[in-house]
Amino acid sequence: MENSRRSFLKLAGISAIGLGTKPVLDAFASSEAHGEKHGPEIFPNQEALTAKRWAMVIDTRKFESEADLDPIIEACNKIHNVPKFKEKRHEIDWIWVDEFKHVFTDLEHEFVDDRLKHLPFLVLCNHCENPACVRACPTKATFQREDGIVLMDFHRCIGCRFCMAACPYGSRSFNFRDPRPFIKEENKAFPTRMKGVVEKCNFCAERLAVGKMPACVEASNGAIVVGDLHDPDSEVRELLKNNYTIRRKTHLGAGPAIYYIV
């Protein structure tokens, strides 16, 4: 007992200075091997949905007006305890709508066709291949997983908002005050945030981990599809092969993973 306590302390110490937990646990397990049968180990869920590189395709042809998009946004907000503030300044958005000329600032022109001109577009974090937000973050509170999803570790964020300045898509929001009183109906299964940290779309990482599709996908009646960009047989690849798609501000080289069929 004494021995393992010491090693666990050591392990905690090492993990505290920022190494991943996996190698440490492995080392721990092997050092214990002669004494007990198992060292503690941690694994992903078996039923988790995985991909080499996650991507999302939004088929905007299936949308006509904001009424089609509201349930999608609502689903995300509800599941993730996204607050609704009266004050515009304090606004927090994970997924929201805007016009073509604002979403595709470099593609818009005066004579863009009527449908695009008036169609609301869904906007969310692009889970960039080369995320500027991750580069900027001084604490690795914003990080990119191997599968491409860009996530926030709210426990670690110091609220410097460097990531917000860095993101070229305006995908990030800051908790200018305690969000709790502004959440209509709390989803007990997902934490809220606290004041002073940044947040954004998390590609429903918490749902993928337990084998569920992202909330927006489920609420979209098939208009939004996510899948593995590196798997040639995946549904997203199928869609990309057969449709013309656009992405936001590609000239910046960030490599957004959200594709729009227009």
């Binding site: 001084p138 604490t139 690795k140 964020c157 110091i158 609220g159 410097c160 002073g196 940044v198």
Partner: peptide, 17 residues
């Protein structure tokens, strides 16, 4: 003054990036 979570400022040293 500008940090949202000034108490955690030390994270910049704990997790040097």
């Amino acid at each position: 003054a500008d940090l949202g979570q000034p108490m955690r400022a030390i994270n910049v040293i704990f997790y040097p990036t």
